[in-house]
Each structure stands twice: as C-alpha cells, then as structure tokens.
Design a protein around this nucleic acid. Structure first.
Length: 576
RNA sequence: GCGCCCGUAGCUCAGUGGAUAGAGCGCUGGCCUCCGGAGCCAGAGGUCGCAGGUUCAAAUCCUGCCGGGCGUACCA
C-alpha cells in the first residue's frame, strides 16, 4: 500500500472513529477512471454512526480535501471519489520500480521456508500431449512465483514409472515389439504398443491378466522385466528432457514412483501393526469413513494400499513419497499439481497421513485443475484421442516464422535469431494458453485458438515487451532515476503507472490462490495499458522533461512485463 | 444414489457483496509522412441456468431445483 492511500485511510478512520483496516477494506478504485483514483463507499459505516451514507460521504470529502496529497475529494451520493496528487503518486510508483528493478514484487515472506511442488510427473513410455502441459506449465509458474517471494522451492518430477501399466507395456512389447523400431520411434512406438494392447484386450481379456502378471514379476525383481523396464525409462527420459529444455524447466528432484518400491513393503507392515490399515477382501486398505456415531451411510471409499495379488498401487507410493519429502525437506507446504479428477485420491491420501499422526498432513495441498478437452471430449491416451505437444509446438513455431517473414517492417534479425524468437514465441503461446483461465476451468483445445497470436495471447504480451525494448534501444542513454512526474499528465500515462503498482499484490494473490492465472490476467491488463500509452504518447524527440519522464515509464513497464512473463514461464524477447 | 467442479455476450472466459456486469475471438466501421499495425479507437451483442431467501445493496452469500463434467476399492 502506498503512503498516499495510507494517509487517506488513516485520516478517514480517525474522523469516523473506526479502525484503519475497516477503511482500507472498502477503499477501492472507482467504477470509472474519470471519477478519480480511489473511492470510499460509506454504507458500511452508516449503521454504527447512525447517519446516512450520503452525510458521511460529504463530511469525509471535505476533510480529505485538506490533505496535501489529495487533489480533489468529492461526495457522489454515498461515495467519496478521490483524486490524488498524481505527480506524487507516480513518483512513488516509478521510484519503487526503478529502485527495485527485477526484484520488484518480491518479498521476504518465504524466507526460511521450503515449498515442495510435485508437477509435470508424466508417465514414461508416452509422448507428451497437450494435456500434460497444464500441470507442467502451472507447476513451473508456481515455482517461479514462490521463488520470487523468497521461498526455497523444490521442483519434484514424480515420474509415473511404476505400476500395472508397465506390466501391460512389457506384455505388449513381448508380443509385438520390434527393438529397432522402438529405438527409432522411441515413446511414439511405445505408445502405439500400449494402445494396441488395450484394443486387443477388449477382445481378449486374458491380456489384462498377462499385464498384471508382468507387473508382479517386475515388482518381484524379475531380471527380464527389470531390464525392459529400465530401457523404457531411459528412452523416455531422454525425450522428456528435450521438452523440458524447450520449456526452460529444470527439476531439483527427479524421482519416479519406482524410487519408493522398497519403502512400500515396510510401510504397509507398519500400518497393519499399528492397526491403521487392515485386510479386506484380500487387499490391504486404510478405512477412512468418519463413523463418529456408527452411521456410515456416507461410506467413504477406503485408501487401497495393496491389491489382492500382492502388488502395490499409486496411493501406496504416494504415501511413501510424502513421508520421504517431509523427512528430506521439512517442507512448509507440499503442492500436488494434478488434475481435479484425482481429488478423491488426494483427499484419501491426506486423511490417511493424518490418521498416521503426521501433523504436517495439513500442509499438503492438491492444486487441482480442469482437464484439457479435445473435440469436446477428454483426451484419452488409451483411446488414442490425443494432440501431441510436439505437433502443437511445431505448428506454432512455423506460424511465427511466417509472420516474421511477412512483417512489413524490415526485420534485422539474423536467421539464427529468427529461429530463437520463433521458438520462444511459440512456447509462449502454448504456455499462456494454459494459464489464461482460472485453474479449475476445463480447457477446450482448438487449433485456431492456440495458433492465434492476436488479442489476449502470449505473443501479444511478448510483442508489447519487444516494442518497449525497441524504444529503449533507440533512446540509448541512462534512464533518469528521478524523472519529473509532473510531465506525466495524460490519462494513459497515469493509468499505466497505476497498473504497475498492482504487480506485487497480484504476485502474492497468485501464490496464495495457487493460481498463476491471476498473474497472467493482470499481465494482459498491463500490456493493454502499455499499448494504449504507446499509441497515444510519443516518447523519443519530445521536450526533455516529457521524454525523460516517459522513458522512465517505458523502462518501468518493460521491467515489470519481463519479470511477469518470466514468472509465468515465458521468455521476453527484446526483438521479434 | 452420494461427493467434488462448472453454468455470465454467437464462441472461449474474467468478475465471488457496493455505482451503468467486463475482456478476447467473430461481426461492422475507422487509425501508419511519426518510437515495431503481432497494435490502437469506435459500434452492435447479456432476463449473469431457474425459483425462493438473507442484506441498505446479490452474478457474488444461503436453500432447493435444472443442465453439463469428473470421481465413486484392487488403473495412474
């Protein structure tokens, strides 16, 4: 909160004899910019003061008008609309951004705290699809946001490299696999084998049995099963790493489900001995029904730890992983960035850990998100109804190459730079598309939408940044550290500066709500304000007071835009 | 059946108690002798799923219903 707003709130609170926080709670920007900078709706104070809101507003208006930082304060019915001393406000905002630079919007709230984020965590032996992008991009952005707030963040890639499905894959490979083809086509061939397995299993259910049997052999350490499995893992990881490199993602910990295979046995033993788990229908479960008064008409499904064939499940390994992560990192919080369809799983998991007496169970958060739909249906890897990430990326990059070539303005980019830019912007389009709606919304994947780079899109934000970079390049001198803000009197200048002021609180909201959308939404508004300013206010060649003030504004906007893009996991090219 | 999520403009989505509900796409019409037109400006387009209730004030909170998605013990 800036000092001007604080002064206003304190004065008003003093006058009304209410806590400052009450005033700050209702103080907001007005409905329309032309009404002023801030407004205080006075309804909330009417009852206790036994006066009409209109009366209160009138009194506040005349009192606030006397503050030196207030330019104008007028009552509009029950509202007080306040216009502040703009040069002072802008000097405060610009001063802060110029002083803090890339550190603007950071804070010490995370000092000494560790956050573990489990994200991306793809299943091996399958190509990345556009559906995998949601967890990858969300988790990555959350990671950068928390880091900006001073947290130590451990990005965990909990690879899906264990489970019945690998029994199925081994069975499929044993039946139809060709080594050379797998080596050549990698995950795409493994994926084909997997799909074929499920298709043929529809006709011949004994295949499922065969798959389960292979998984059992795998869990028991059968050398042939292990060897094939390791081969699949190595091949897959090679491909995944390339994708992560393109996306600019690095993990602090890559530790698949298989890493916990030796912990699950003892864990199940312990739970049985403590009476937390029990045998039921041949399997081992943790009952979770909260039967306080014996009425279990709700009948919550239990958490399954071991199947009747003796093999473990996803949940067993997740349990072991949570304990491992707490022991290793003593986390402040652990976030699971996993689609909303798994809500029950996490509810069960957290409850089971609570039953086990771990106080940190309350620090586990399922950061749920909506699924990506294709042709109005959920993508299904098994059914083969998927869009591969690589295809989307290639098309996006190709589209951008064309746009660069067709640009009217002669581009001075070298061929190498063009490639770089095409990739950065292509990735940006995909990333932004995944962060451009609140996380619980499903996303309808449409080619024309992802390949549209106009309006609200990743490239729009990057383009805005590149324009500002262009102005700064041409200016070519030191940015004035104490610009004359009285020279910034245009509506668009004030609006842009006020937008810049919101950045820190938006970063915090995004962290608090575990939703980078809150940041991406803000960045679009910021880019819009920037373009409006750019369109109506010329910078270079203006009288020196104006030019100096405007270039400082340009610099501040570019700095925030760049930082914001980075927090979303996007590049901010200087030229494009 | 039960649980969670969603329902706002033709389409995709913001807005979760405060003034006349906002964007993008699409549609109509404007703006480059001037810092990058991947841009800017203007216009048309909405009984905020329905019905009650709480409140000075409801798209927003509560209750019920309708429609859609997901989940609901041996997949991950």
């Amino acid at each position: 909160m800036n000092p001007i707003v604080r002064e206003i709130a304190e004065r008003a609170a003093d006058l009304l004899r209410v806590p400052v926080a009450r005033v700050e709670g209702v103080l907001a920007p007005p409905r329309e910019e032309s009404l002023g900078d801030y407004t205080i709706p006075c309804f909330a104070f009417a009852k206790e003061l036994r006066r009409s809101p209109q009366e209160i507003a009138a009194e506040l208006a005349s009192a606030l008008e006397e503050l030196s930082s207030v330019e104008r304060a007028e009552a509009a019915g029950p509202y007080v609309n306040i216009t502040v001393d703009r040069p002072r406000l802008l000097a405060h905002i610009l001063g802060q951004v110029l002083r803090e630079g890339e550190g603007y919007g950071s804070s010490g709230e995370g000092r000494g705290k560790t956050i573990v984020i489990d994200y991306s965590s793809p299943n091996i032996a399958r190509p990345f699809t556009i559906a995998h992008m949601r967890t990858t991009v969300l988790g990555h952005s959350l990671k950068r946001i928390y880091e900006h707030l001073g947290y130590r963040v451990v990005g965990v890639n909990h690879l899906g490299d264990w489970g019945t499905q690998f029994g199925a894959l081994i069975a499929a490979y044993k039946r139809w696999g060709v080594r050379e083809r797998v080596e050549r086509e990698n995950v795409y061939e493994l994926f084909r084998l997997y799909v074929r397995f499920h298709e043929e299993a529809k006709q011949d259910p004994s295949l499922e049995e065969e798959g389960r049997a292979w998984f059992k052999r795998l869990e028991e350490g059968d050398p042939e099963a292990r060897e094939l499995w390791q081969w699949f893992v190595d091949l897959s990881w090679q491909v995944f790493q390339r994708y992560y490199e393109i996306l600019g993602i690095e993990f602090e910990e890559v530790r698949g489900e298989s890493a916990y295979r030796d912990r699950t046995g003892p864990l199940i033993q312990e739970l049985l001995e403590k009476g937390i788990a029990k045998e039921s229908r041949g399997a081992v479960i943790v009952p979770l029904e909260d039967s306080e008064d014996g009425k279990d008409d709700k009948e919550e499904p239990p958490l399954l730890l071991r199947k009747s064939d003796g093999t473990t499940l996803y949940a067993t390994r997740d349990l072991a992983a949570a304990i491992y992560h707490y022991e290793t990192y003593r986390f402040h919080k652990k976030l699971y960035v996993v689609d909303a369809g798994q809500s029950l799983h996490f509810k069960q998991l957290f409850k089971a850990l609570e039953k086990m007496g771990y106080p940190w169970a309350k620090d586990l958060v399922h950061v749920a998100f909506g699924v990506v739909l294709f042709e109005e249906q959920r993508m299904s890897t098994r059914a083969g109804r998927v869009v591969f990430f690589e295809d989307v990326l290639n098309q996006a990059v190709e589209r951008i190459r064309q746009i660069i070539e067709q640009a009217e303005k002669k581009t001075d980019l070298t061929e190498e730079e063009k490639e770089r830019v095409a990739q950065d912007v292509g990735v940006g389009a995909i990333v932004y598309a995944n962060l451009s709606r609140s996380r619980l919304q499903n996303i309808h994947f449409r080619w024309d939408e992802v390949l549209s780079f106009e309006g609200r899109s990743g490239p729009y934000l990057q383009y805005t940044h590149a324009r500002l970079a262009g102005v700064l390049r041409k200016y070519g001198r030191e940015i004035p550290q104490a610009p004359d803000c009285a020279a910034l009197s245009q509506l668009q200048e004030v609006a842009l500066a006020k937008k810049l002021e919101q950045f820190p609180s938006r970063v915090q909201s995004a962290a608090r709500e575990y939703d980078p959308f809150l940041l991406s939404d803000y960045l679009y508004d910021l880019a819009l304000a920037t373009n409006k300013f750019y369109d109506s206010c010329r910078v270079l060649g203006e009288p020196s007071e104006v030019e100096g003030a405007r270039i400082a504004l340009v610099y501040a906007a570019k700095t925030v835009l760049k930082k914001g893009l980075e927090l979303l996991g996007m590049k901010a090219p200087e030229k494009m």
